[in-house]
């Protein structure tokens, strides 16, 4: 290993903030990279998992794919997926984004499926009885009611992806991981500064999707929605 080990002093934490100020340019560019990698991964994951999950839920089929399959993907060790991807996609951002999509979409898929599949059949029957077409039922009844749960999945995935993108530092994916894995150049204060930035980004991602969730939740359902609480990590394995 090429690590140089810094010693820890009580004021290392203070130094971490000094590090951020002294290296504002570096922090800014790494944070931007981190956001781009995470943003790409979240977007692709949404594009794949939401339509698939909603559709499977709508036709009430494919629980094996949406639940069992997802659970298996979620159990995969992040670094191992990144390592395997590296062998096939080579060094750089593509591989990291690919791994993040593989690891992040299952939770979105499962939630979207469960949200739509679990809607009270009486409501669907009422909608059908009123003469709604299948597409109208999907857009006017199923989707609005499923949104809170769908967004809960998106929040979990977003926090996971932002935090996991740190591992990109190991395989040339860029982002804040570059600082965290380079103690030799940036010392322990740099590692701490990078970690604080990652934690702040995760929190920000959580907050953004929580706000979106609130904005799109139908009013009648919003009565149950509470104020912002950070995603509970115990709900899902999001340590990375």
């Amino acid at each position: 290993m090429t690590l140089a080990y810094d010693s820890f002093r009580p004021y290392t934490f203070v130094d971490a903030f000094k590090f951020m100020a002294d290296n504002a340019g570096l922090m800014w560019s790494k944070t931007t990279e981190h956001l781009i990698v995470s943003g790409e991964a979240i977007s692709i994951a949404l594009l794949i998992a939401i339509p698939l999950g909603v559709w499977l839920g709508h036709i009430h089929r494919g629980s094996f794919v949406a639940i069992t399959g997802s659970n298996i993907l979620r159990a995969l060790p992040s670094l191992a997926v990144i390592a395997i991807g590296l062998g096939y996609l080579g060094i750089g951002r593509t591989n990291v984004v690919f791994a993040l999509v593989v690891l992040g979409s299952p939770v979105i898929l499962t939630n979207a499926y469960v949200a739509v599949d679990g809607i009270d059949p009486d409501l669907i029957e009422a909608a059908r009885g009123m003469g709604m077409r299948p597409l109208e039922i999907l857009l006017k009844v199923e989707l609005p009611l499923a949104l809170p749960l769908i967004f809960a999945g998106i929040r979990t995935a977003a926090v996971f992806i932002v935090a996991t993108a740190t591992l990109g530092g190991v395989v040339g994916g860029g982002g804040l991981g570059d600082i965290i894995v380079n103690q030799a150049s940036y010392f322990l204060r740099g590692v701490i500064a990078g970690s604080i930035a990652v934690a702040a980004l995760s929190f920000a991602a959580d907050f953004v999707f929580w706000s979106l969730q609130r904005a799109v939740t139908p009013r009648g359902l919003r009565l149950q929605a509470r104020s912002f609480e950070p995603m509970s990590p115990a709900d899902d394995a999001i340590a990375v």
Partner: peptide
């Protein structure tokens, strides 16, 4: 929960001095 917010790659490094 506080422990959880630290990226593992960093946590392991932070523990080394101790």
């Amino acid at each position: 929960a506080f422990l959880y917010t630290i990226p593992s790659l960093a946590l392991f490094q932070l523990l080394v001095p101790f």
